[in-house]
Design a binder for these strands. Structure first.
Lengths: 140, 140
DNA sequence: TGCAACTATTGCACGTGTGCAACTAAGGAG
DNA sequence: CTCCTTAGTTGCACACGTGCAATAGTTGCA
């Protein structure tokens, strides 16, 4: 099996898994993405979140409402500009979601831990290039 | 920035990009996943597709209907069992979707092409381990 | 041949997420 | 102070995907 085929299967599996994980946690795709962003990028305003997810202001408000109801996020006033509302991840996640994430973290972590320095470097190069490419493609 | 942080950002970007790509092609998340599976795994019956996506039979039929209407997939009779319907990818994709995919394939391909053999090996190990882990986690 | 199990499709009704438009509150320029 | 812009929230209506139940066609076993 060549690298391209392996890559296509990998991508399909990643997306499928994460959508299933969202579902297992009782979250829609939008809410799951919002939670992921808040987790990986840190607190941000409602507007920033909406722009990143390409959501209307109202849809953003509703998504944050749902995350708060689920205990995943919380709102805080922005001290610099009281029109803005900071949204931040509480660190909590639904149990079903945590279970599913834990199942993949172990085997993947083990595989990465077994890599030589040069091999891990290759993975890092890919991760950074792909992250930048994905973001860049959406910015245009 | 450590590897774990880079990885979290990468995952968020991957999922976000692919959902945005689906949207750009006028597809819902389910249809996009179905198309990805048909592309990477080859033709399969409606039932197999539904089980992989964890969809009810009726939702599966509807998803395939939409893919066919979009020209992405087609149905074919299964010669061995005429109850079954084989679904296969036509190779076509909506223009907006192709555009977005092309934008990321180039920079990612360039980054991977620049890897040494050892580095590329590391990436391959990760891709295969992750694919298996994601699939395994959903099978249980 | 008759009958049970299986595959896929359709009618129907429901829940969910979304955008638009109107509104409130807060900042900034004149 | 007044006006204009920006940030976020709410009422409302709509489109979409989904599951359930019923149906048609097919297979295989008794």
């Amino acid at each position: 099996m060549d690298l391209t085929t392996a890559y296509r299967r990998y991508l399909a599996a990643v997306v499928r898994f994460h959508l299933a994980a969202a579902d297992a946690g009782g979250l829609g795709a939008t809410d799951y993405q919002a939670a992921s962003l808040l987790d990986s990028e840190g607190p941000m305003t409602s507007g920033e979140l909406g722009r990143m997810l390409r959501l209307s202001p109202s849809a953003t408000t509703r998504a944050v409402d749902r995350l708060i109801a689920a205990g995943i996020a919380e709102r805080a006033a922005d001290p610099d500009d009281r029109r803005r509302i900071l949204v931040r991840h509480t660190g909590l996640l639904p149990d079903g979601l945590l279970d599913l994430l834990a199942r993949v973290q172990e085997p993947i972590g083990a595989a990465v831990a077994g890599l030589t320095d040069a091999q891990r470097e290759g993975l890092e190069v890919y991760l950074r290039a792909a992250t930048e490419a994905y973001r860049g493609a959406l910015d245009r």
